[in-house]
C-alpha cells in the first residue's frame, strides 16, 4: 500500500515552527498590524480565513493524520455555532466560555455519530458522517422551538473587559488569537505520543495494534479532536456573522473543507493552512475572473458562478489526489529546496 504522506511528516510541522521562528514571528507582527494598514474588507476577509483555517485543522487531524474521512464537517461546525448562540441567548455565557463549550458539544455529538462505525474499517464511517450531515441539518431546520428554523438566531457581539467586539477589526484579533492558539496546539499534539499514535493508525492499523496502540481509542481521540476544532470554528463563526442559520452548514461546505485539506496536503499542518487560504481565496478570484470575462464578452455570469465554483472544487480535488497527493505543502517544500540550493 502506498502511503500518501511521507513518514517525515512526523517531524516536519515541528521543524517548520522551530527552524523558522524568525519567519513565524515576522508573520505574526504583520498580522497584528494588518488592521492599521489594510482596507476593512481585507480584515473581514482575514477573519473568515482564520475561521476556515481552524476548521481545516480539525478535518486534517481526522483525515490527514488519522485517515478518517468525514463528510459531515460542516454539520459539526453548525453544532458549534448553534451551541455558542444558544449559550449566549439562554444562559448569557460570555464568549470565552461559549466558544470552548461549542467545541466540546461538537466533539460529543461527533463521537456519538462516529462511535458505531469507528470500530469497523472502510466505508462505514464515511456513510455515518454523511448521515450526520443530513440529520443534523434537518435538526437545525426543523427543531423550531430551539433553533428558530430557517430564520435562524441572532447573536450579540462578544464582549471582553467591557469592549464589544462589534466590528471586523475587533473580532479579527479574537480570531487571530484563536488561530495562533489552535495551530500551536495541533502542532504540539501531532508531535506528542498521541500524534504519533494517530499516524501509526493511519499507516498500518494492525501493526499499530500489535505494537500496543489502541486503535479504537486513538480513532476516537482523533474524531473528538477534529470535531472539537469544527465546533470552535463554528462558535467563532457565530460571533463573526452574528447570526446562525441552517443554510450556512450544507453539504457544499463539507466539500469545501474536504478540498481544502486535499489541496493543502493531507497530514501536514502547514498544508491545512495553505489549503484553507487557497480555497477561501479561490471563490473570490473566480468571481473576479468571471466578472472580467463576462464584461469582455458581455454576458451575465451571475448564473454560472455557483456551478463554476463546484466544477473548480471538484477539478482541484481530483487532480491533486491523482497528481500531487501531498498537496500544496509539498509544492511549497520543493520550491523552497530549489531556492535554497541555489
Amino acid at each position: 500500500m502506498v502511503s500518501y504522506v511521507e513518514t517525515t511528516a512526523l517531524r516536519s510541522p515541528a521543524m517548520w515552527f522551530t527552524a523558522n521562528r524568525l519567519t513565524t514571528g515576522l508573520l505574526l507582527v504583520i498580522l497584528l498590524i494588518l488592521p492599521f494598514v489594510a482596507p476593512r474588507y481585507w480584515i473581514y476577509f482575514a477573519g473568515l480565513l482564520g475561521i476556515n483555517i481552524i476548521a481545516t485543522h480539525g478535518l486534517n487531524i481526522m483525515m490527514g493524520y488519522t485517515g478518517l474521512l468525514s463528510l459531515g464537517h460542516a454539520a459539526f461546525i453548525g453544532v458549534g455555532a448553534y451551541t455558542a448562540a444558544l449559550a449566549q441567548i439562554h444562559l448569557g455565557l460570555p464568549f470565552w466560555i461559549a466558544i470552548p463549550l461549542a467545541g466540546v458539544m461538537a466533539a460529543v455529538i461527533g463521537v456519538g455519530f462516529g462511535l458505531p462505525s469507528l470500530r469497523i474499517r472502510g466505508l462505514y464511517l464515511v456513510i455515518a458522517t454523511l448521515a450526520a450531515q443530513f440529520i443534523l441539518n434537518f435538526v437545525f431546520v426543523h427543531w423550531q422551538s430551539v433553533t428558530n428554523g430557517d430564520v435562524g438566531l441572532t447573536v450579540q457581539p462578544a464582549t471582553i473587559f467591557g469592549v464589544s467586539l462589534n466590528n471586523e477589526t475587533r473580532i479579527y484579533y479574537l480570531i487571530l488569537f484563536a488561530v495562533v492558539f489552535m495551530t500551536w496546539f495541533v502542532v504540539n499534539v501531532i508531535r506528542s505520543r498521541v500524534g504519533r499514535a494517530l499516524i501509526a493508525v493511519r499507516e498500518r492499523d494492525l501493526t499499530a495494534q500489535v505494537l500496543g496502540v489502541e486503535i479504537v481509542k486513538y480513532k476516537l481521540i482523533a474524531f473528538a479532536l477534529g470535531s472539537f476544532y469544527a465546533g470552535v470554528a463554528g462558535g467563532l463563526l457565530a460571533y463573526f456573522n452574528r447570526f446562525v442559520n441552517p443554510e450556512q452548514f450544507g453539504l457544499l461546505l463539507s466539500v469545501f473543507f474536504l478540498s481544502a485539506v486535499i489541496v493543502g496536503g493531507m497530514g501536514s499542518t502547514l498544508g491545512a493552512i495553505l489549503g484553507a487560504v487557497f480555497m477561501t481565496l479561490l471563490p473570490e478570484l473566480l468571481r473576479e475572473g468571471a466578472l472580467q470575462v463576462g464584461d469582455t464578452f458581455g454576458f451575465d455570469i451571475a448564473l454560472i458562478l455557483v456551478p463554476l465554483r463546484e466544477t473548480v472544487f471538484g477539478l482541484l480535488m481530483v487532480s491533486f489526489l491523482i497528481l500531487e497527493p501531498r498537496g500544496l505543502a509539498q509544492l511549497w517544500k520543493r520550491a523552497k529546496q530549489k531556492f535554497e540550493r541555489r
Binding site: 500500500m1 502506498v2 502511503s3 500518501y4 483525515m63 485517515g67 474521512l69 463528510l71 472502510g122 466505508l123 464515511v126 466539500v255 474536504l258 478540498s259 486535499i262 456551478p307 463554476l308 465554483r309 463546484e310 466544477t311 473548480v312 472544487f313 471538484g314 477539478l315 482541484l316 480535488m317 481530483v318 489526489l321 491523482i322 497527493p325
Partner: peptide
C-alpha cells in the same frame, strides 16, 4: 492501489465536477 479513502474522495470530486458542468 492507493488508499481507499483517496479513491472515495476522487469519485466525490467527479460528482462535484459533473454537477458544476
Amino acid at each position: 492501489g492507493r488508499p481507499f479513502i483517496a479513491v472515495v474522495m476522487v469519485t466525490f470530486g467527479i460528482g462535484s465536477i459533473i454537477r458544476g458542468v
